[in-house]
Computed example of a mutant assay.
Amino acid sequence: MSRELDQIDKGILYMLQREARETTAQEIADTVGVSPSTVRNRIDQLETDGVIRGYHPEIDYEMANLPLRVLFICTAPATRRAELADEIMNVQGVIDVREMMTGRRNLHVEIVATSTTDISRIADAVHELGLEIESSELVKRRQIQPFDHFQFRG
Rank of each mutant, 00 (worst) to 15 (best):
S2E: 10
S2L: 14
E4R: 15
L5M: 03
D6P: 09
D6N: 15
Q7C: 00
Q7K: 13
Q7G: 03
Q7W: 04
I8H: 04
I8L: 11
D9P: 02
K10V: 01
G11T: 07
Y14T: 10
Q17D: 03
Q17N: 11
Q17I: 01
E19C: 14
R21D: 08
E22T: 12
E22A: 15
E22D: 09
E22W: 07
T24A: 00
Q26M: 10
Q26K: 13
Q26L: 15
E27I: 02
D30W: 07
D30Y: 13
T31R: 11
T31D: 10
T31Q: 04
G33H: 12
G33I: 05
V34F: 03
V34K: 02
P36K: 08
P36Y: 00
S37G: 01
V39K: 11
D44A: 15
D44T: 04
L46E: 06
L46I: 00
L46M: 05
T48I: 11
D49V: 09
D49E: 13
I52Y: 00
R53F: 02
G54F: 08
Y55E: 00
P57M: 01
I59C: 00
E62F: 03
M63A: 14
A64D: 12
L66H: 14
L66Q: 05
P67Y: 11
P67C: 06
P67L: 04
L68E: 03
R69P: 03
V70N: 03
V70L: 01
V70K: 12
V70H: 01
F72E: 06
T75Y: 05
P77V: 15
A78G: 06
T79M: 08
R81H: 03
E83I: 12
E83R: 14
M89W: 13
N90Y: 13
N90V: 09
Q92L: 12
Q92V: 15
G93T: 10
V97Y: 02
M100E: 14
M101C: 01
G103S: 04
R104S: 11
R104G: 13
R105T: 04
R105C: 06
N106K: 06
I111F: 00
I111V: 12
T114G: 15
T114Y: 02
T114R: 15
T117Y: 15
T117A: 13
D118L: 02
I119E: 00
S120H: 10
R121M: 13
D124I: 08
D124Y: 08
V126H: 04
E128T: 14
E128M: 08
L129Y: 09
L129E: 01
I133M: 05
E134R: 07
